[in-house]
């Protein structure tokens, strides 16, 4: 299975979204005990970034860094996620520690993780509109959205 996945000279994996879940499961089995990091990148202006020839560049990329304590090594997985359908399977059932990271990616970048047990905004307020880390979200000042404090508990 791992051999089917495109790999670049730096050792990064470039699975398709269909391969992603199985690849992570296999890596988990082969000794990568914990998931260091999961984040999303918005390549809005850079569809021409260097990628292995077979990989079709999409707007979003989900980047996962797995670490093995036994082998003392790291491996990076980069998955292309199209803008029209920004969904990617959750890693929660392989690495429960990705729960907060996936919520963060959803909150700030708008990537949806089907199967995630509690996919709500984590950093921004509940009623916030938009996903601030996207490149087309204004970097400038946002007027204070101060409202009356929520219902008295």
């Amino acid at each position: 299975m791992i051999d089917d996945v495109i790999k670049n000279e730096a050792g990064n994996y470039f699975p398709t979204r269909e391969q992603y879940d199985a690849l992570v499961a296999e890596l988990h089995k082969s000794g990568y005990e914990y998931c260091s990091d999961l984040c999303a990148v918005d390549y809005l202006q850079h569809f021409d970034r260097p990628l292995p020839a077979e990989v079709v560049a999409e707007r979003f990329e989900v980047v996962v860094n797995l670490t093995s304590v036994k082998m003392r090594s790291r491996v990076r997985i980069r998955v292309q996620v199209p803008e029209s359908d920004p969904t990617i399977p959750t890693l929660f059932y392989h690495y429960p520690g990705t729960e907060a990271m996936e919520r963060e990616a959803y909150d700030l970048m708008g990537i949806v993780f089907p199967g995630h047990p509690d996919l709500t905004r984590i950093l921004m307020p509940e009623e916030w509109e938009g996903h601030p880390l996207r490149k087309d979200y204004s970097a400038e000042r946002v007027p204070v959205q101060f409202k009356h404090s929520p219902a008295i508990r």
Partner: peptide
């Protein structure tokens, strides 16, 4: 509409 099925913009 598809996403809203999967996500929950409700209370955290």
């Amino acid at each position: 509409a598809e996403f809203s099925k999967e996500t929950f913009e409700g209370p955290q």
